[in-house]
């Protein structure tokens, strides 16, 4: 068994254990044995385990994967260690669109959330592109523009939430990212997008390896670099947007997961993508499990916890890549 397979298997095992733990823990703690029995046969705890905690865990895993893969694609194309969908303002655009729609039509079917968020994400991406197209922006400039756009978009969300007061937990979803109250009704709208987008990202992995040698070199090796850039960026925006549609902007996952994966397995995208997806899932699931269990029955938003790890790491990156 290669080191890589071992790493992947231990990641899956860790994720499985964490999921079991997360199923057992909460305002009402259950023994693991009860949890496993309930998963298979239902029973007294059927609601807590199968209808409350299980879908939430699945969403945490799916969203973590989506954000992480989006980060790998963005960093691969922009070749900027500071690039990630949330720092660039793409998640902000998706969040604003989804939040606006829910405030205007509170009873709209969840199926519409991902496409609306997608529209918001693409609009933000278009604005970033327009602001940067005059010259090839330096990494720090791109990050700065993104942070400015993110700040603007989240103040728009703030403004909307003041105009249309909602329950504090649902406000938290759009302000910092949270999995509060996410159930099976949010799993199904998310799933088809990921089933298409995740394999498509793997399909781009080899070309992204070549793209890492520089655009000229990739061109000379026969890569359609323009097509690759468009395909990868559109997938990145779509992955981030559909994730945000379900639980808001859970920050820094798209930045942290790819970096951690590269640290573990090097720079080949074929190897980085699965590991980053696992790391992203682990990050969001642990953040949400902690968020539910630090002070039950009160909940912290998961986004606050990812920011506690993510923000210092961002500062470290800024420090490491001097000259940006």
């Amino acid at each position: 068994m290669t080191r890589y397979t071992q790493l992947l298997l231990s990641g899956f095992l860790l994720l499985f254990l964490l999921a079991c733990l997360s199923l057992a823990m909460g305002a009402e703690s259950l023994p693991i044995k009860t949890v496993l029995q309930t998963l298979i046969h239902g029973g007294d705890q059927d609601f807590i385990v199968n209808y409350y905690r299980l879908p939430r865990i699945l969403i945490a895993i799916l969203v973590g994967m989506g954000l992480a893969i989006s980060g790998v694609l963005t960093q691969g194309i922009i070749r900027n260690p500071l690039a990630s969908p949330d720092l660039m303002g793409i998640s902000g655009g998706a969040g604003l669109a989804a939040c606006t729609m829910l405030l205007i039509w509170p009873n709209i079917d969840n199926v519409w959330l991902p496409p609306i968020a997608l529209l918001g994400g693409f609009s933000a991406a278009l604005v970033i592109w327009l602001l940067n197209r005059w010259h090839n922006p330096s990494p720090a400039r791109l990050a700065l523009v993104g942070i400015a756009i993110s700040a603007f978009l989240s103040s728009c969300i703030n403004f909307l939430l003041i105009l249309h007061p909602v329950e504090v937990n649902s406000a938290m979803i759009w302000l910092t990212g949270s999995l509060w109250g996410r159930n099976w009704d949010y799993v199904w709208p998310l799933l088809p997008w990921l089933i298409v987008l995740v394999p498509f990202s793997f399909y781009l992995a080899w070309s992204l390896d070549l793209f890492a040698l520089g655009e000229d070199t990739a061109d000379a090796l026969g890569v359609d670099t323009k097509g690759l850039q468009i395909a990868a960026l559109l997938s990145a925006v779509a992955l981030a947007s559909v994730s945000v549609a379900v639980c808001g902007t859970i920050g820094f996952v798209g930045l942290l997961a790819p970096h951690l994966a590269r640290l573990l397995v090097g720079s080949r995208h074929k190897l980085v993508l699965p590991v980053a997806a696992l790391v992203g899932a682990l990050l969001v699931l642990s953040a949400d499990t902690l968020a539910r269990n630090l002070a039950p029955p009160l909940e912290l938003p998961a986004g606050v916890l990812t920011a506690i790890i993510g923000a210092p790491y961002f500062l470290f990156l800024l420090h490491r890549y001097k000259g940006y």
Partner: peptide
């Protein structure tokens, strides 16, 4: 085939992996 003036060397890439990229076409 063309070798540009200053291609980027990704961190940790082995010589064999780099050479295998030449087979892309």
């Amino acid at each position: 085939s063309i070798l540009p003036q200053s291609p980027i060397t990704p961190e940790g890439l082995s010589v064999r992996q780099l050479v295998s990229f030449g087979r892309n076409p």
